[in-house]
């Protein structure tokens, strides 16, 4: 598991108010809105926390980048690409 994936799992787990030990069992292919029940604002605050932990500025992303985030795995991929760049 990469550092970015750990961050996303941890922050999503907190967002969903789940016990910390469930972080490793979250399905990263699940739909953020329909599966996890996140609103668009929930996604923004989740991304804010994830970006802060990953040391990436949220404003480095275009709105279209954020609009493509449908699953936690998408967040991992977006952040990983930015950190690697």
């Amino acid at each position: 598991m990469t550092d970015i994936e750990t961050i996303v799992r941890d922050r999503l787990c907190r967002k969903l108010k789940l016990a910390p030990e469930r972080a490793t069992t979250l399905d990263l292919a699940e739909d953020l809105a329909h599966g996890f029940g996140l609103s668009s604002l929930d996604l923004i605050t989740l991304m804010t926390s994830v970006c802060a932990d990953a040391g990436v500025a949220l404003t480095d992303f275009d709105v279209d980048d954020l609009a493509r985030l449908k699953r936690p795995a998408d967040i991992v991929a977006l952040l990983a690409a930015r950190v690697a760049a």
């Binding site: 609103s39 604002l41 929930d42 992303f61 954020l66």
Partner: peptide, 24 residues
């Protein structure tokens, strides 16, 4: 989508929002 990031970056003194934003 970038409201929170912009707030963190520019440290505004006033934010114009709807209740749904502040509730989030």
């Amino acid at each position: 989508e970038l409201a929170v990031g912009a707030a963190q970056a520019t440290q505004p003194t006033v934010i114009m929002g709807v209740p749904g934003f502040f509730d989030g």
